[in-house]
């Protein structure tokens, strides 16, 4: 009796609340789902794709954005871009690294070495603010630092489907979500751009690239959509460089746990046999 009264009260209150819940959602559309080679329990990075993404990063993103946490040597490690040691050395040597002080007490520039990290494109945050009107965020863990709200009940299903590419999907949406003109009725502050997927829509980063901006040697389409996907895959690797090892070891651990749990189950049945049979 009391239960049904309470249930009724609860239901009524939730119903009364429902329309307000709906109005709480804002007008940002959810990013479209992409297909990623690295999703799922056996996901791996597509080497060609992350190499293309690296090219996009070097030629477009690196003008403003740093990659502070990544070293050149990381490019050649297992589960990374698939470069050889010589290629890594070559890439590193294409960068100028500030080092010092030398014996004369002066800072100097030298060729990069595999142990060096990617140099930042600006000296300090204030210099960046002067130059770009904002501090371009570091991209090292960007693919894990952005997400979008999945909402009930999707966030529960995600546990079982292992959908966790919220960050990459958002990044692709953001890179392709620029609109030349803000919709009618929206006035943008000067120096800001309109982006469909950016929370609040007014974004400090101008549209970074368009079709044909980067030349691909492997014949992949040179389109904004392709660039966005490739550079996002590269950023997923920079954010989670040991992802392939993690998923590989995870599978081994799962097999072990299932076998061990199975054995323990039979041991338990044996041990409890006499108790269950009432002999004890």
């Amino acid at each position: 009796m009391m239960r049904s009264i309470l249930a009724a009260v609860l239901a009524a209150s939730l119903l009364g609340v429902a329309p307000q819940l709906a109005s709480a959602a804002d007008d940002t559309p959810p990013p479209p789902r992409q297909k990623w080679s690295f999703s799922g329990p056996f996901g791996k990075f597509d080497r060609a794709q992350v190499q293309r993404g690296f090219k996009v990063y070097r030629e477009v993103c690196a003008v403003c954005h740093g990659l502070d946490l990544v070293s050149f040597r990381n490019l050649g490690q297992p589960g990374a871009l698939g470069y050889s040691e010589a290629q890594v050395k070559q890439i590193a040597s294409e960068y100028k690294i500030k080092d010092g002080p030398n014996d004369q007490g002066e800072m100097f520039e030298r060729e990069g070495r595999p142990a060096d990290r990617f140099p930042r494109p600006w000296a300090n945050e204030n210099a960046a603010r002067v130059q770009y009107n904002a501090v371009p965020p570091d991209l090292s863990v960007m693919a894990k630092a952005r997400t979008y709200e999945r909402g009930f009940p999707w966030f529960i299903f995600d546990i079982f489907t292992q959908y966790q590419e919220n960050g990459p999907d958002y990044l692709v949406a953001l890179l392709t979500g620029y609109e030349d003109k803000a919709p009618a009725g929206v006035t943008l502050p000067p120096t800001l751009s309109y982006n469909k997927y950016f929370p609040g829509h007014a974004i400090a980063m101008p549209k970074p690239m368009e079709d044909g901006r980067v030349t691909y040697e492997d014949g992949s389409p040179q389109t904004l959509a392709q660039y966005s996907k490739d550079v996002t895959a590269f950023l997923m690797w920079t954010a989670e460089p040991h992802m392939e090892a993690r998923k590989r070891i995870g599978f081994q651990v799962m097999i072990f746990l299932l076998v061990f749990a199975g054995l323990l189950y039979f041991v338990k049945q044996k041990v409890w046999y006499d108790v269950k049979a009432g002999r004890i």
Partner: peptide, 22 residues
Amino acid sequence: CVVFAWFVFYMPNYLGHADNYI
């Protein structure tokens, strides 16, 4: 532990918050 390993190896950031990577 199977449930635990599911999160650790397959969706290690699901229970965390993206903003903590900033």
